[in-house]
């Protein structure tokens, strides 16, 4: 998922002695592979991950790690294992989260099996660094997202980000990481931007995998940035791993009018965020999800109602392996034109 493979790799590389095969970036070929062997109406992340797994196995991996929890994600691994075994691959698939709960005992056993010299203290130390790394990355990502549409020199943000991530790979202790983060944050702020005072502001909400995997939404965010739109996105790994409970409780408290109970996966937080965007006078909401994502489909009528109440336009994108890029671009352009006209 996006750049988050870096902290994950960093953690695994440092706590146990294994060779890591980096998953290749998702391409159309990956999706075709995944699509070919997947059941008919499973949601799109299943197809992407299956395609990536096949590519990794072709590269020579013999152990796959998967994190899955919530809605259908948690059950992916079992079916994927069966499909891949039917295809004749020999490997071990480990799902670290069962039924939405992290199983610490199981993780410890697995690590012990891989590497007999594993020490808990060392593991916790590197876990701490990794957690911080994710937090810093998310903060910088937020800044980039707000400004990337207005950069004077093209690709200056992306190049600096790449440079920073390369440096992040080599850190040894939390202090070094913190210093690096501060230095690069300053550098990011120095990048020249040409930002008009009241530019269009749009919030993106939706299902997490589609939001965070840039390929699956056809670089929707970049496309938006090229229209000179400031983007607000809430979902990131920091939210998923650490702040989830807190935000869900807040969401339930703040949007009592629209929901009484906690809903599955991220749908209840999406309701809250839609309301937040409405109250803070954003110009529009973009809701993206993969096709057949059940929890999100369930809240779409509620989002409609919020959009109606706060008079804020909302557009829905549903991504599938067969969705055409051009169609999405056209709809996005029309949405942008509409926002501009509303401003006038």
């Amino acid at each position: 998922m996006a750049n988050y493979y870096i902290p994950a790799n960093y953690l695994i590389k440092n706590i146990c002695d294994v060779e890591i095969i980096e998953a290749p970036f998702i391409t159309t070929q990956t999706i075709e592979l995944g699509n070919k062997y997947s059941p008919e109406f499973v949601c799109t992340p299943f197809k992407y991950t299956l395609g990536t797994m096949i590519e990794c196995l072709d590269k020579g991996a013999n152990m796959l790690l998967q994190f899955g929890g919530g809605c259908r994600y948690g059950y992916y691994s079992e079916l994927q294992e069966q499909i891949l075994k039917d295809l004749g691959y020999k490997f071990e698939l480990v799902n670290l989260i069962t039924a939405g709960k992290i199983n610490i005992k199981k993780i410890y056993k697995i690590i012990k099996k891989i590497d007999k010299n594993f020490k808990v203290s060392k593991g916790l130390y590197y876990l701490y660094i990794t957690v911080n790394m994710i937090k810093y990355m998310d903060k910088i990502d937020d800044y980039i997202r707000q400004n990337i549409g207005f950069e004077v020199e093209k690709n200056s943000f992306n190049n600096l980000l790449k440079e920073m991530l390369e440096k992040f790979k080599t850190v040894n202790n939390p202090i070094q990481l913190y210093i690096l983060y501060k230095i690069y944050f300053k550098k990011f702020k120095k990048i020249k931007i040409n930002k008009p005072k009241n530019c269009l502001k749009v919030g993106i909400i939706g299902e997490l995998y589609t939001l965070m995997e840039p390929f699956s939404n056809y670089f929707l965010e970049k496309e938006l940035a090229s229209f000179n739109i400031e983007i607000k996105r809430f979902t990131n790994v920091n939210y998923l791993l650490f702040d989830n409970k807190k935000i869900v409780n807040k969401a339930l408290k703040k949007s009592k009018k629209y929901m009484k109970y906690k809903m599955c996966a991220d749908s209840s937080t999406n309701v809250y965020w839609a309301k937040y965007l409405g109250i803070n006078k954003y110009d529009g909401i973009i809701h993206i999800k993969s096709s057949f994502c059940t929890p999100e489909i369930g809240v779409m009528p509620i989002l409609d109602k919020i959009a109606n109440d706060y008079n804020i336009p909302i557009i829905y994108f549903s991504f599938d392996a067969n969705t055409s890029e051009v169609g999405i671009k056209t709809r996005l352009e029309a949405f942008y034109d509409m926002l501009e006209m509303r401003r006038k």
């Binding site: 009484k260 109970y261 809903m263 599955c264 749908s267 059940t294 369930g298």
Partner: peptide, 13 residues
């Protein structure tokens, strides 16, 4: 199934 947990709010809205 996640539909069962959003039924109330769906109908209410």
């Amino acid at each position: 199934c996640s539909n069962f947990s959003s039924l109330y709010d769906l109908v209410n809205n």
